[in-house]
Simulated assay, not measured.
Amino acid sequence: MKMSRGERELQKQFGTEKRAGAFYKNQMTDSLTPRMADFIAAQEMLFISTADGGGNCDASFRAGQAGFVRVLSEKTLMYPEYRGNGVMASLGNISENPHIGLMFIDFTEHQIGLHINGAAQILEHDALSSLGFNDEEIHFLNEQEDGRAERWVVVTVHEAYIHCSKHIPVLRKHSDDYARDADDRKRKGGDFFEVKNK
């Protein structure tokens, strides 16, 4: 696990070295535990952070059915890329710089989070065989995704650690029909923030 020079310097400056040392020792790991794998399998949303080759950052959101992020081993997971706005900001960053941060947050049951940092690669469907999937398994994956997965992002885990429940709000989940039935053309049409005619 890599600790940056900046965090070490600030720990020293602000007197948090002992606390940080205990966290590194007791809460950080370089692979996924079985409990982490179970947690990931239950999540329906994911926040990701990427940066381009120059270090310019981007944060984004992914969501799907529970289990849309699949843990393949203690060191590997993958998630599908669905059709979006066509900008390819996150994938473009990954193509230049593989470093990625994943943030899973359970807002509704345990109010706990999981950070995963690692290296990402983009795989097309036919390249999933490089991970050991056979044609039948690849077909089954596509069926599970109802054909919506355009490609996949595979992440090699470098470090994983808890995001404690402090300050995580308790949210209530609505039915899937709640968002679909909302009659808000600005929200659905993508110009909620009134950028189009600026």
Rank of each mutant, 00 (worst) to 15 (best):
Y82E: 09
M1T: 08
E74S: 15
N134E: 14
K188A: 13
E7K: 07
H139G: 09
F193G: 07
D52Q: 07
A41T: 08
D38G: 12
P34Y: 10
R35D: 15
G118F: 00
M1E: 08
I162R: 12
G55L: 11
R19F: 15
T108L: 04
T76C: 06
A149T: 06
P169Q: 11
D30Y: 04
E7F: 05
I105T: 13
F133I: 02
K12M: 07
F47N: 10
G64N: 06
A37K: 13
I100A: 01
E150M: 13
K188H: 13
A182M: 09
T76G: 02
G118T: 03
G54E: 13
I138A: 03
Q144N: 11
A179L: 14
G84K: 04
F39W: 09
S165Q: 05
I162Q: 07
Q27D: 14
Q121N: 01
S49D: 06
N26R: 10
I40A: 05
K75E: 12
W152A: 00
E159M: 08
E143V: 07
S31R: 15
D177W: 04
P34G: 12
I40E: 05
Q121D: 04
Q111E: 11
L141I: 02
K173Q: 12
G190M: 02
I94E: 01
T76H: 09
L46I: 08
L141A: 05
G54S: 14
R185G: 06
F47C: 11
R151G: 03
S73P: 10
V87H: 13
L123H: 00
L141Y: 03
T108P: 01
G64S: 08
D38I: 13
L46T: 06
Q111G: 00
S4Q: 12
W152Y: 13
R187D: 04
M28F: 00
Q121I: 00
A51C: 11
A89F: 05
F23K: 06
D183E: 15
G53C: 07
Y79A: 02
E81H: 03
R19W: 08
G6A: 15
D181V: 04
N85Q: 01
G6V: 11
G67K: 06
K186E: 14
F192M: 12
T33V: 05
F14C: 03
R62S: 03
H99P: 02
F47I: 10
D30A: 10
Q144Y: 06
N134A: 03
H115V: 08
I100T: 05
D191A: 05
D181I: 02
